Simulated assay, not measured.
Amino acid sequence: MQHIITAYLEGGGRGVITVAEARRLGCGPPVVRAMERSRLILRVARGVYVSAKEFNPPRDHPAAADVYALQRHRHLLRLDALLRSYGDKVAASHQSAVLAWGLPTQHASLERVHLIHVPTGRTARRFDAFTIHTCEVEDVVVTHQGRRVVTAALAVIGQAISVGVMPGVAAVDAALVKKLVTRPELSDMLQRLQRTPRLSLARTAVSLADGLAESPGETRLRLLLMKLGIMFLAQHWVCTDSGNYFRVDFYLPELGVVLEYDGTVKYGDGSSRPAWNTSGPDQDRGRSRAGRSQDAVSAGRQALVAEKAREDELRLTGFGVGRITAADLTGPRVEAVIKNARRQAQPRALRRPAAAPAWAESR
């Protein structure tokens, strides 16, 4: 009988099975308990299980790429199990909804799955590994990629409330870049949630987001520059002496410095991996790891050559250029990179005006 459940998990069950589904397959509770004792399935909550094979993917699986990828994979699997178990009585919220929308969060916040009661007015309940929250507002549940989730606006606001301003800003930036929310929608949601505790964290996160940062790392770097009191222009077009236009991550006009964030993950690439983790998820699962690695090496070399040529041209025009990595995202390190780049800067790079080229404005 166990093979029936295994086939279901690998097929239509998508790694999840409930006791009720097992009964419909002709497998009673003793079969389920035996599989749990054998560690073939893992209990998520009362009456709902996930495949151990899916929960612990092999090393060559994209979800095993790093700690964050594995935590994200497991969180979404547990989320799907709970949504299956509770049906239309709940929807994903907070960090769980942020992940479901493909937005960034902190890996340290992924141990607990978050849901909301549907409809409103129910009492919040906290279990060992998940929480079902109350919800003050109506009409905030939608279906996204087969999951019942709160709207992206409520998800990012919930993230700021529960995790803090920095992750909140990253989530709002990502949602704006990916056009999942608009500023009026965020303002409206904040107004609807005006009696919610800790809402000031979300208001701050929304006010600090600019929708220009292209990655979580750029978001964090922008906030660090603001904290350091350094004037900057984000996603700024500069024109070199050769007549070429480059859009740089940050231009510091009073210093003649260009700062570039050196990260592989962009908000618009479908990845929710934050800047304090490494590369994004593998989108080409059908090919061998060797083939993917060769392509990655080739693409990396081409990108490196292009970046080197771009930096050389910026320096020839008089700009000081500094590169920031995820490891540099601290005040002292950013100040050190800026100080070094400032030594390279020429007076003609100070307060240098530039407008976007016509071909960029027409896009």
Rank of each mutant, 00 (worst) to 15 (best):
R33A: 15
A20K: 14
A152D: 10
G263F: 04
C27T: 02
R203L: 11
R148L: 08
T143W: 07
V118K: 12
A81W: 06
V67W: 12
D139I: 01
L110D: 08
C239K: 07
T204N: 14
R323K: 05
A108P: 00
G211I: 14
E21P: 01
E10L: 11
W276Y: 13
A64H: 15
H61D: 14
L316Q: 00
R351W: 14
G243R: 06
V19Y: 12
P347Y: 10
D295Y: 07
V150I: 12
A63S: 05
V257A: 11
G256V: 09
P30G: 10
A275L: 04
Q71H: 08
A360V: 04
V257G: 07
M226F: 06
L233F: 10
P216R: 02
L70R: 06
K308D: 07
D312P: 00
G168V: 13
R126H: 08
D188R: 03
G291F: 09
M189R: 09
D284R: 13
T204M: 14
W101R: 11
V44T: 03
M166C: 11
R147Y: 10
R222G: 14
R74L: 04
C27V: 02
K89F: 15
L77T: 02
G280Q: 00
V172C: 15
L233T: 04
P197R: 15
R289K: 09
A160M: 12
A354K: 07
D269Q: 05
A349G: 00
A209N: 08
G280A: 01
L99Q: 04
H73K: 07
R112W: 15
N340C: 05
E214S: 02
F246L: 02
G331V: 09
A202C: 02
T143E: 13
R72C: 06
Y261Q: 01
F55A: 06
V321L: 01
R315F: 03
P332E: 15
H236G: 03
S162Q: 10
V118S: 09
Y245A: 06
G286K: 14
E335D: 06
R315Q: 01
W359R: 02
R198I: 02
T151V: 06
F130Q: 03
E138P: 00
T151C: 05
D173Y: 13
D60A: 11
R348W: 09
E214Q: 05
T120H: 10
R43I: 03
T182F: 08
T240I: 00
L304C: 04
A124W: 01
I4G: 07
A336K: 13
G291V: 07
R112L: 15
G146R: 04
S96D: 02
H117W: 15
V156R: 10
V238A: 01
C239Q: 08
C135D: 07
G158A: 10
S215Y: 06
N277E: 12
Q302L: 03
E307Q: 03
K227G: 11
V67Y: 12
Q71V: 08
P357Q: 05
R351N: 12
Q191L: 06
T18D: 12
L201N: 09
D312S: 01
E111Y: 13
T143M: 09
L329G: 00
N340R: 14
G270V: 01
V297A: 11
M231L: 10
Q191D: 08
V169W: 13
